[in-house]
């Protein structure tokens, strides 16, 4: 039986309560915003009962203006048999960016969570090896957070007047 987006939404609302979940449907892909403590429960339910066994992507977004929920951790998962996609977003505050790891569920999350930690500083609780993966280990900041300008701050030879900045 192919599960539809509406059905999925109904099931999730029944299970977790409609008041804590927010659903949006920007395209044919169902998106759900949930409290961060629910991330594993929702993923587990979808994994076990609705055959969402493939983690397409896991990343984070920094919204500096969203006070109390500056970092959004986004999971893209799919049910490859029925061609259904699902996106789960959880918000966490930047002061305490702790989110449960999904590595027990998806092995692919190991790499992606390390990358998300590397660039956004999200602390994935329970991750087996949470350290930098792409950037140099000596880096002391999380470069994709918006308070860090893109330019290399160590340069002294660039004259702002010449470079139009």
């Amino acid at each position: 039986m192919v599960i539809t987006n509406d059905e999925l939404q109904k099931q999730l609302e029944e299970k977790f309560g409609a008041d804590i979940l927010t659903f949006v449907k920007p395209s044919d892909r169902l998106s759900c915003i949930a409290p961060k403590s629910y991330n594993l429960k929702i993923l587990q339910l979808l994994f076990d009962h609705y055959n969402f066994k493939f983690l397409n992507d896991l990343t984070a977004v920094h919204y500096p203006d969203n006070i109390g929920g500056e970092l959004a951790v986004v999971y893209h998962i799919s049910n490859l048999q029925d061609k259904v996609y699902f996106r789960l977003t959880v918000f966490t505050s930047i002061g305490e960016p702790d989110v449960f790891t999904a590595t027990q569920l998806f092995s692919a999350a190991n790499w992606m969570e390390r990358e998300t930690y590397d660039f956004f500083g999200v602390q994935f609780i329970g991750h087996p090896n949470l350290k930098r993966i792409l950037n140099v280990e000596e880096m002391t900041y999380y470069p994709m957070r918006k308070e860090y300008p893109l330019e290399d701050q160590t340069r002294k030879d660039k004259d702002d007047q010449m470079f139009g900045r």
Binding site: M139, P143, Y148, L150, E151, D152, Q153, T154, R155
Partner: peptide, 12 residues
């Protein structure tokens, strides 16, 4: 000089 990649990951 780092070229167009004036960024955190590239050696300048």
């Amino acid at each position: 000089s780092g070229g167009i990649f004036d960024t955190y990951s590239v050696l300048q």
